[in-house]
Design a protein around this nucleic acid. Structure first.
Lengths: 206, 206
DNA sequence: ACTTACATACATGCACGGATGTATGTATAT
DNA sequence: ATATACATACATCCGTGCATGTATGTAAGT
């Protein structure tokens, strides 16, 4: 075979990403060989190794494809609710659920990272980026809680970090369950309701 | 080598379970070979294949080792708080966090099932049992919410199933985060606080 | 306009290790 | 004597990484 144009090469790269995403998502990362991916995309392992260093690099590329839109969504919330920290907390928490329910790539990646991927040295790379975003996000959320407490939207006695941790747990936990059984409930509505309840509960803490 | 007594055989079986638990927990299920397990236990694959059919069967046995104490704990709550549904909800939710923080086997298994194991056809068996218990537990929790609503401990307008789902998400999500970074927070205290906040929030729902 | 030279975009093949499953050996408890 | 509790040995398959082949796009020189 022979060289393609840059556009065609980019297209095969995307094809490989899409194929890998689907196979990882259904069969698990370590149970999917690079050969499986290549053949499912009607290519060979040569193509895979041309575009990516190895399986871990492929996984990392999959995550990077959805990381940007995710962060942009969070930043959009910052702009829209610039003056209301409590609203920002709710919106950001719900944004994750909304996005995962709406964007197929995001859904697939979350499915892979939460259920179809072993948390091990081999998958570091994608994991590292994932965790980085998470840490940043948690730190930001803790700050939001501090601001909300300072503005008296939440009681002064509240532990900001612990509250943020609880919120994160709530959102990720619901996400986790939804990924396991998507038919059971609507992730957007359930997350919104649960987050509201949790925040209301924090408000009436003595 | 030669035949051992039944007690000795049982001991090697436990040894295999313990070493498998540790290796799975640190390196991931699919990145741990049966040979790794055997050698770490100063045995051979022959011993592994004598006691277990294959890797999936081993994983299943690991889960079964902790499933009974887990359920017994939940039943104990039923006896202790026979007359107070709201207290049962809180206690059961916290029982998971308490147990995972106190019992090393439970910690290891949860770590394996949530982070070190791909959710795939190969790991069905353990997964199936895990899910079964979870389903049962969720159904029970939904009933608890119904009872609490009927007894006016929670508002009549509340959706029992959705509330139970939220609680489950909260508990599992906190568990998930704690497994990722155990140094960051105390799972017992954080779970208790978050569960209390969530329930308080549900109470003041209109 | 046409060749040249090179980089690109893959395909193909091989060497290697490693994992599984099973068949068989063997020594001992009962 | 026989079933048990393993160890050993063997056959098979699979996945990875790399080295190499190959045909084309592309830019530059003339």
């Amino acid at each position: 075979m022979a060289r393609k144009t840059k556009e065609e090469a980019q297209a095969t790269r995307e094809l490989l990403l899409d194929t890998a995403e689907q196979l990882f998502s259904t069969h698990g990362v370590s149970h999917t060989s690079l050969n499986d991916i290549a053949r499912a995309a009607s290519l060979t392992r040569g193509a895979v190794y041309w575009h990516f260093d190895n399986k871990a690099d492929l996984l990392k590329a999959l995550w990077e494809r959805v990381a940007l839109p995710l962060q942009q969504g969070l930043e959009a919330v910052d702009r829209e609710q610039a003056s209301n920290p409590r609203a920002r907390i709710v919106q950001k928490a719900c944004w994750m659920a909304d996005h995962i329910g709406a964007d197929a790539h995001m859904l697939a990646i979350m499915n892979i990272l939460m259920l179809r991927c072993e948390f091990t040295a081999e998958t570091e790379g994608a994991r590292a980026h994932f965790r980085e975003v998470r840490e940043e996000c948690l730190a930001g959320m803790t700050d939001e809680f501090r601001t909300a407490i300072a503005q008296q939207q939440l009681p002064l006695t509240l532990d900001a970090e612990r509250s943020a941790l609880g919120l994160f747990g709530l959102v990720d936990g619901l996400c986790f369950h939804w990924l396991i059984d998507r038919e059971r409930f609507c992730i957007q509505a359930c997350t919104r309701a649960a987050v509201e309840a949790y925040l209301s509960g924090l408000e009436c803490t003595r």
